[in-house]
Amino acid sequence: MSVLLDVRGLKTTFPVGAGQIKAVNDVSFTLGRGEVLGLVGESGSGKSVTGFSIMGLLEPPGRITGGQILFDGTDLTKLGQEEMRRLRGRRIAMIFQDPMMTLNPVLRIDTQMIEAVTAHRPVSKAEARALARDALGQVGIPSPEERLNAYPHQFSGGMRQRVAIAIALLNKPDLIVADEPTTALDVTIQAQILAEVQKLTAEQGTALIWITHDLSVVSRLADRIAVMYAGRIVEYGDVAEVIGKPHHHYTAGLIGSVPSRNRRGSRLAQIPGMTPSLLTLPDGCAFRTRCARADGDCAVMPELTGQGAHWHRCVHPNTQVLA
């Protein structure tokens, strides 16, 4: 499988007053064509910022201060604004978290879909409209021709997310960055959307970065998982390996906090404390203030170590196999 995206040592910082917030700190991963990567972490872990860094859509004053984002061999961090714009929506598309907020409330659906096509391809409005209609049909929106003339407020949340997905798929991109696209939806809708995305990306051979805080979603969808904590990847590997044999105590804690059927009646595990502020990170392993296994060795930042397809950033890796 050829490599589509190769992120190497990505650093994204936000200047705050005199200091800097390192929202993304030395993040590396690769993604093959058609592969699905689950990017997992709590809010503030830097997972969304990683997504926006790839899209070149960081909110100023945030900016990439180091590393490379090689997309099909091109370093995206070196591209100019116009080159980046041509890539966005054409070869890399994005789906956002809250479908109620992502569609422009005063523009009709057809306007918002047609412009996504004509921004990149020299086609007529009629052709673009036909493409838009087909895309709506693809994501399972009934009577797409009529729905094209509707405004966003005339759709439900789940329907809007389908529209957003249809827009992302319009130009048959190589990569879709999905930033928690099901978090804001009802559980039943969530499952439908998941299945839909899975089917469509598989059909088109589109690679997917699925950003989420929900491990159970990722375990069903992803080929590989990257777990982020305080701006760094703390564990990375094949989905079965990471879920079944988490090496990092944070990952283990996340898995333990997922309610599951076969542990009924027992107390739900939780990770004590809260995500540290990126301004006041402890030296060394950022997780050590919350980690039961932490000791003096943890005061030095551990390197990402491991073998084959499973890497972790911990000096006292967990060896237990999870049920």
């Binding site: 899209m55 859509l57 604004q81 714009r85 041509r86 890539l87 966005r88 929506g89 054409r90 598309a93 994005m94 956002f96 978290q97 809250d98 907020m101 992502t102 569609l103 422009n104 409330p105 005063v106 523009l107 918002q112 412009e115 996504a116 921004a119 990149h120 957003a164 827009i167």
Partner: peptide, 24 residues
């Protein structure tokens, strides 16, 4: 978010400002 989404679609900055922002 819809302005960000418009940018994510690869629209030109002109279209983002004069259609998506201005219309609102």
């Amino acid at each position: 978010e819809y302005v960000k989404f418009a940018r994510a679609k690869g629209l030109t900055e002109r279209r983002v400002i004069f259609v998506h922002v201005l219309k609102n």
